[in-house]
Design a protein around this nucleic acid. Structure first.
Lengths: 342, 342
DNA sequence: AACGTTTGTGCAATCGATTGCGCGATTGCG
DNA sequence: CGCAATCGCGCAATCGATTGCACAAACGTT
């Protein structure tokens, strides 16, 4: 167990003071040093295999070069690309990230923010889902750099990156409407999640601009963004309005569940009923009927968030826009057709 | 920006020395203290909202309560459950984890180990894939606690957790053989990845115990564990042995690719050719034909690895077994049938 | 030649928590 | 009642890197 090399070791080896070694090894050196000394120090440093102790450095400088990444659940397939997007930007800059899963639980989220702060993260990238979580807001107001994904925090200067949910819903709605659908139901996500609420609002807006009576729309809210609730909600939609010819779902998994329910009651998609999803998750194009859906830019969203965070941390916080809206893309596949009796 | 509370602040507030405060707040206190003092300190501590500075603590104790988790790629769906399994154990114990993606690149892996060591991680959990990566071995030999997943490191005392790959392959082989298949090909994974090699070996073994000529087996190796290579390799298998009635694939994605290729050449699965996968990845049961595959315990594997790591870190390293083999489960679905001309 | 600048380096404090050592006070025992 | 053992707590060093300040040497100026 050979001891780690420290500045002191190098200082002794070269016969200078540790402060000089520190300065010689500092890339953006403030104090002038003789080239000769710098060279000698550099040389012995990597001859001895010196690796700076980040802990000590962090203690002194109050910077850990670590950022916290809060996500609901890494096993949800839409998040890994976001994480990689973040790291694609932050890792080259020397930052490491601590990823925590909130499981969308308020209490847990609060504890995790504390944990991250205890560890002295330089900032937090927060892929929010809960519509109201005061913890992260408080942290931001206390001066911790925060960037959020999918979530606007009103009344603060916290930058946020969101996908153009409204445009995505509108594109899907437009497609259904253009095909001739007039009985379009919405299988909504949980209203306490930002994406659930936003997509619901967008759905109503799309209906409204086409002169449809917003009051009469069939809208059923799922409790979870999963297949089980998709099935349940789809069943309820058919009960509430048997004349439904198309269902615009708040995400792919709900759509998959809905289609599965239709199968059990003998309805075929898209012949009997059209369905659209949202997210375009991996392998979706291998599950029949290949779902028409809206693709969002996950990797890019993470990368943008990370770039903004990096700007803030390097003191250029004023350059980063409060709002960044990423474009989405309608992916037409096989789950939409003209309504049966048009 | 209100300053953080430190031990010194509490010391001043209660009129004792910081060392006393430190001891009073230490749950496993070595030095005896008056209950009164402890109480007063504890009380003022959380009145002031004290949160210990882990950085300072780490510097002094040489423990960061952080472990590094190295995985090939978090966007590969089999890894998120492993990560959650790890965290389910480590987080309650006060550990945080830094997750890094190696992308199965040797050079990258080496840099990442260094990065983790620079950050003073207390240990590394390494979900290995590359069959030979000297970096992690060196780190382990240098005294860093290491536990590996999916990978045995010969000649060391590094504990490893593996799924019972051999049993899984044997189960799949046995199923195919029992159905009457005698021309069973293997669509192997990359040989430089541990799972690729292990499953290939197991395939040969299964064939051998049934008296089949191991030399004559049709085995094609994919360069990547993905659908594209699955298609390519499947095509080659049919060229090499048109009489093939079943293909045992080294993982699900290869199997999916293979089936896709069969579709393009007019072969149906399972009517014309049977296929098995490995891993039982999410949503696999929604992709037709529902693949018969071998389920591995990802979450549990991560949890076990974490438990072993925790044991080592708490000084009970001698209690952890070098080898842990997790059972697998054959999941029979629809991609296997009796051969066409039996 | 005298004096003010620069220039290169050392000194020492600092970040906040931990911990071996030791001192004074209390307790126990004979 | 005296001495030793124990107890409770303070002192100060320590972890390793960073950085404001001081200081000496070298330089330039008049």
């Amino acid at each position: 167990m050979n001891k780690r090399i420290t500045l002191k070791d190098i200082a002794v080896a070269t016969g200078v003071h540790v402060s000089t070694v520190s300065r010689a090894l500092d890339p953006k050196r403030e104090t002038p040093l003789t080239d000769d000394v710098v060279l000698r120090i550099r040389e012995t440093a990597d001859r001895l295999g010196y690796r700076p102790n980040r802990i000590a450095s962090s203690l002194r400088t109050q910077k850990t070069m670590t950022i916290g990444v809060m996500i609901p659940d890494i096993t949800n397939m839409i998040f890994p690309p976001i994480v990689r997007g973040i790291e694609s930007v932050l890792e080259p800059l020397g930052y490491a990230s601590i990823i925590v899963n909130t499981d969308s639980q308020r209490g847990r989220e609060q504890r995790l923010v504390e944990i991250l702060q205890d560890r002295g993260v330089d900032g937090i990238i927060h892929t929010a889902v809960l519509l109201d979580d005061p913890t992260i807001v408080k942290a931001a107001e206390a001066g911790l750099p925060v960037v959020t994904l999918n979530r606007k925090i009103e009344g603060t200067r916290v930058p946020y990156i969101i996908n153009d949910e409204a445009a995505g819903i509108e594109a899907a709605f437009s497609l259904l409407h253009d095909k001739g659908h007039r009985h379009i139901a919405h299988l909504a996500g949980p209203r306490n999640l930002s994406t659930g609420q936003l997509r619901l609002d967008a759905f109503r807006a799309s209906a409204a601009i086409r002169g449809m009576n917003v009051e009469n729309l069939t809208i059923v809210e799922a409790a979870q963004f999963d297949e089980v609730d998709g099935r349940r909600a789809a069943e309820e939609i058919l009960i509430r309005d048997p004349g439904t010819t198309a269902i615009l779902c708040a995400n792919d998994r709900l759509a998959l569940g809905a289609i599965d329910h239709f199968r059990t009651v003998g309805l075929r998609c898209p012949e009997d009923i059209s369905v659209t999803g949202f997210n375009d998750m991996p392998f979706l194009n291998m599950i029949p009927p290949r779902l028409t859906t809206v693709r969002i830019q996950q990797f890019e969203a993470g990368a943008v968030a990370a770039r903004h965070m990096a700007s803030i941390l390097s003191g250029h916080g004023e350059d980063v826009p409060i709002e960044t809206i990423l474009p989405v893309l309608l992916i037409e596949r096989d789950s939409v057709a003209v309504p049966r009796q048009a």
